[in-house]
């Protein structure tokens, strides 16, 4: 199979070209969470030819996942998400390397699970896991792309560790969702796709990454709003 023809439509872009495609092929992205956001992120990055993807998810496939998590089929209920996700991706691009880590990311293992990557994509639904991912990104000096959804709403924020605001810079410590978060598949698709675009910009070295700019999406209003966010000097990311 000709890899050149596979990527020919994106190589046409001056922002990518042959050099950019080579850069993508030599890159590694870690995606934490293979759920509603992880599905569009992983699929977009795999199809774009990001050379190595590390899939991190401890969870198994549940019926309530299937309204949005298009990596999985009804016949795969209760199977490990990251293994099934890797299978889905492998069948769509056999030319990339897929690493699976069927573990929950914790404070203790975050440094190990996220080492050696060029970008980290946070697609999780727990504030605590986001915190561990953010702090590990800071320690490893790896750019991080945050995303979250709640029903018809969502946000994306990219973080250049130590340089631009992280989620902890702007979030109250006690803030946590209560109970299952409402989720619309199409909105997760919007936000996950935006996270994938941010990843590609970071990997390609393109300007205008959403550093210090939280992009809010409101599907009910049909509106994007950019909210500037600044580093908090006493945030742990500044230590």
């Amino acid at each position: 199979m000709s890899e050149e023809s596979r990527y020919s439509r994106q190589i046409l872009l001056p922002q990518i070209g042959e050099q950019g495609q080579k850069r993508l092929a030599e890159s590694t992205a870690a995606v934490i969470g293979c759920g509603g956001l992880g599905a569009p992120v992983l699929t977009s990055l795999a199809l774009a030819g990001v050379g190595k993807l590390r899939l991190i998810d401890h969870d198994r496939i549940g019926l309530s996942n299937l309204n949005r998590q298009f990596l999985y089929e009804e016949s795969e209920l209760d199977k490990e998400k990251c293994e099934r996700a890797a299978d889905f991706l492998r069948r769509r691009n056999s030319g990339i390397v897929l690493e699976t880590v069927c573990e929950r990311l914790t404070e203790e293992n975050a440094g190990r699970l996220l080492s050696g990557v060029d970008v980290i994509v946070d697609c999780v639904d727990r504030v605590e896991t986001r915190r561990h991912a953010g702090r590990a990104a800071r320690r490893l000096s790896v750019p991080l792309v945050e995303g979250g959804v709640h029903g018809f709403y969502g946000f994306v924020l990219s973080v250049l560790p130590g340089k631009s605001a992280c989620l902890e810079c702007v979030t109250a410590q006690e803030a946590e969702e209560r109970g299952p978060v409402p989720a619309v598949g199409a909105v997760a698709g919007v936000i996950g796709s935006l996270q994938a675009v941010e990843c590609m910009k970071i990997l390609l070295g393109l300007p205008h990454v959403l550093y210090g700019r939280m992009l809010q999406y409101d599907g009910l209003y049909g509106e994007f709003t950019e909210v500037p966010v600044h580093v908090r000097p006493d945030c742990i990311c500044q230590s």
């Binding site: 509603g36 999780v124 639904d125 504030v127 959804v149 946000f155 979030t171 946590e176 969702e177 997760a188």
Partner: peptide, 10 residues
Amino acid sequence: LALFPPVGGG
């Protein structure tokens, strides 16, 4: 002043 509820799920 900008006010947001918790950041949401994935």
